[in-house]
Amino acid sequence: MQGYKGNTIYRHFGDSMVRLLSAFALAVLSAIPVGLLSGYSSKIKAVFEPIVNFFRPLPPLAYYALLIMWLGIGNSSKIMLLYLAAFPPIYISCVSGVKGIREDYINGAYTLGASRIQTFFHVILPTSLPSIFTGLRTSLGFAYTTLVAAEMVAAVSGIGWMVLDASKFLRSDIIFVGIIIMGVTGILLDRILKIIEINFIPWEGKE
């Protein structure tokens, strides 16, 4: 397959997925523990929530130039941009999940002799899972839409870059192919998260 501008469709798709999934994985590994701890401890929340609330409403391109100056034009700046887009939805969902837990669940665990750590892992974490997965699906969607912005600057590969570059030359065939790939991939990624959610929390929605 000839592809576009010297790279095959598979190469463009692979480069975009590496950027997206790397950023999403970093967001999951950091935002879930920070979010759960922030919901559990007001002191930790006081440290992280102002930071999250500061950069959450900022448009990605507003600080992308700074990331390029600090991290260069390679994948590092693009992954960091996607990471900053993916972090807030997961963090907010985790905090909301902890805050939504009924107080008698926690008090019941303490009454039965559970420590704070045991209560966290056996009561707070399982009860927060529905909110966590909602945040994961929202986060992945935000990161995917930001991927196009990440590939607008100093990129020579990626589905987002391919669509934007093809638009300059009115290559509607390439544009349609890129849009279809992004749409189908978005649906598949969301479906995968939904399947994982069903397996992790099979009790959700059941009486």
Results as ranks from 00 to 15, higher is better:
residue 53 N to F: 09
residue 53 N to V: 12
residue 54 F to E: 09
residue 54 F to G: 12
residue 54 F to V: 10
residue 54 F to I: 09
residue 55 F to Q: 05
residue 55 F to M: 10
residue 55 F to H: 10
residue 55 F to Y: 15
residue 57 P to K: 09
residue 57 P to E: 11
residue 58 L to G: 13
residue 59 P to K: 08
residue 59 P to Q: 11
residue 59 P to F: 13
residue 60 P to G: 03
residue 60 P to F: 03
residue 61 L to P: 04
residue 61 L to G: 09
residue 62 A to Y: 12
residue 62 A to E: 07
residue 62 A to R: 13
residue 62 A to D: 11
residue 63 Y to L: 10
residue 64 Y to K: 03
residue 64 Y to L: 14
residue 64 Y to E: 08
residue 65 A to G: 13
residue 65 A to F: 15
residue 66 L to D: 10
residue 67 L to M: 14
residue 67 L to H: 03
residue 67 L to R: 05
residue 67 L to Q: 05
residue 68 I to D: 03
residue 68 I to K: 08
residue 68 I to A: 14
residue 68 I to T: 09
residue 69 M to I: 15
residue 69 M to S: 15
residue 70 W to L: 13
residue 70 W to R: 04
residue 70 W to D: 05
residue 70 W to V: 14
residue 71 L to H: 03
residue 71 L to Y: 08
residue 73 I to N: 13
residue 73 I to Y: 09
residue 73 I to W: 06
residue 73 I to F: 10
residue 73 I to L: 14
residue 74 G to V: 07
residue 74 G to Q: 12
residue 74 G to P: 02
residue 74 G to K: 12
residue 75 N to H: 14
residue 75 N to S: 13
residue 75 N to P: 08
residue 75 N to L: 10
residue 76 S to P: 02
residue 76 S to C: 05
residue 76 S to M: 10
residue 76 S to W: 02
residue 76 S to L: 13
residue 77 S to F: 03
residue 78 K to H: 05
residue 78 K to A: 01
residue 79 I to S: 01
residue 79 I to D: 02
residue 79 I to E: 01
residue 80 M to K: 03
residue 80 M to E: 00
residue 81 L to V: 11
residue 81 L to Y: 00
residue 84 L to C: 04
residue 84 L to F: 09
residue 85 A to P: 01
residue 85 A to W: 01
residue 86 A to V: 04
residue 86 A to F: 11
residue 87 F to N: 00
residue 87 F to Q: 00
residue 87 F to P: 00
residue 87 F to D: 01
residue 88 P to D: 07
residue 89 P to H: 07
residue 89 P to E: 04
residue 89 P to V: 07
residue 90 I to H: 01
residue 91 Y to G: 05
residue 93 S to M: 07
residue 93 S to H: 10
residue 93 S to L: 09
residue 94 C to F: 06
residue 94 C to G: 06
residue 95 V to F: 03
residue 95 V to S: 02
residue 95 V to R: 06
residue 95 V to L: 08
residue 95 V to K: 01
residue 95 V to A: 04
residue 96 S to P: 04
residue 96 S to L: 13
residue 96 S to A: 15
residue 98 V to A: 00
residue 98 V to I: 11
residue 98 V to G: 00
residue 98 V to F: 06
